[in-house]
């Protein structure tokens, strides 16, 4: 169990005070893959560094399994850090060391007996699928392979928590998915908690079970990933989801705003399906029941870790009262409906 209680981080800069993290409360269960999403400057990188004491909160407490990380110093903090792995956007491997030597480094630091070091490191290299590359230098590896070394290195001292700071942001989509699969694999095999910082909703959807959305130092929304995808509350959350479900959301935005001006009488609605409902013929039922016209503008289905999520943009025309009834009927079928009144392009 990891708890953040009223975390604040204020930096003194030449231009005055800068609040990077502004009163964050979170609790993360053991075994969670917990995502923290936000745009750059939202304070998420500062926040993730508080879990291993690389940053100290100005006020508030970080507690991991009952021990207050934020109050630890010196040797006590360093020995706690050995049980918290961390991986980075730019991998941060030592170029002067081979793959094997990079994985050995945390073991050397922890003072693991020499004899055990090598077999442990080799076991980890196997776990991340890099056997045969032990003697390669980082400069000879691809980005995905480098991150695998980073993961092996982070797991060396059998941590209970793994921190991922934009760990896939420097990777191409294919490699990103491979690394994410590896993280899920590790989460299940080693039963460790993973905290992921990212600006990509895709990462959250693929592997997280819970998510917190950060904006200007605050957590503005938090919950189970499926719930957040189903019913996003905040504008920023909707934006993240839209970017993920429609990679070409800008095109959709243009199409929507055109339709809004061309057909002021109709209504534009955004339907969000999940789980079972993705298999239901919702639209055809509506057309049969109500005298309305439906015009599908854009649709997609995304696979989340625990469920699938469908997204559909539809123009609905007809008598206003009937439209209202139809929308109500869709809602009754347990599909989320959002009426779009204006689009910010």
């Amino acid at each position: 169990m990891i708890e953040l209680a009223n975390i604040k981080k204020i930096y003194e800069t030449k231009r005055g005070k800068l609040t990077a993290v502004d009163g964050v409360d979170l609790s993360i269960n053991d075994g969670d893959i917990f995502g923290i999403i936000g745009y750059s400057g939202a304070g998420k990188s500062t926040l993730v560094r508080m879990f291993n004491g690389l940053e100290k909160p100005t006020s508030g407490d970080v507690t991991i399994n009952g021990s207050k990380i934020s109050a630890l110093k010196g040797k006590a903090l360093r020995s706690k850090r050995q049980k918290i792995g961390m991986i980075f956007q730019h991998f941060n491997l030592l170029w002067s060391r081979t793959v094997l030597e990079n994985v050995l480094l945390p073991l050397e630091i922890a003072g693991v007996p020499k004899k055990e070091q090598k077999s442990k490191a080799q076991e980890l290299i196997r776990l991340v699928g890099l056997e045969g590359r032990e003697e390669a230098y980082p400069s000879q590896l691809s980005g995905g392979q480098k991150q695998r070394v980073g993961i092996a290195r982070a797991l060396a001292n059998e941590p209970t928590l793994l921190l991922c700071d934009e760990a896939t942001s420097a990777l191409d989509p294919q490699t990103t998915d491979e690394v994410l699969d590896l993280l899920v694999d590790i989460n299940q095999k080693l039963k460790l908690t993973i905290i992921i910082i990212t600006h990509e909703m895709h990462v959250i959807r693929k592997i997280c079970n819970r998510v917190a959305v950060m904006e200007s130092g605050k957590v503005v929304e938090e919950g189970h990933v499926i719930d957040i995808f189903k019913k996003p509350q905040q504008e920023i959350t909707k934006r993240f989801i839209r970017q993920d479900t429609n990679p070409d959301s800008e095109d959709t935005d243009v199409a929507l705003s055109q339709l809004l001006t061309e057909y002021p009488e109709g209504k534009l609605i955004h339907l969000t399906f999940h789980g079972e409902q993705t298999n239901q013929p919702v639209l055809s039922r509506i057309i049969r029941q109500y005298p309305v016209e439906l015009n599908v503008i854009q649709g997609s289905i995304q696979q989340a870790k625990e469920d699938s999520i469908g997204s559909l943009y539809v123009q609905i025309t007809g008598d206003n009262d009937v439209i209202e009834q139809a929308i109500q009927q869709i809602k009754n079928m347990d599909v989320e409906v959002e009426v779009i009144n204006d689009v910010t392009v």
Binding site: L54, R78, R81, N92, L105, L163
Partner: peptide, 12 residues
């Protein structure tokens, strides 16, 4: 970042 990574491993 490399220094930070090694500090995160608990290096003195």
């Amino acid at each position: 970042g490399v220094v930070e990574a090694v500090e995160s491993m608990g290096a003195n």
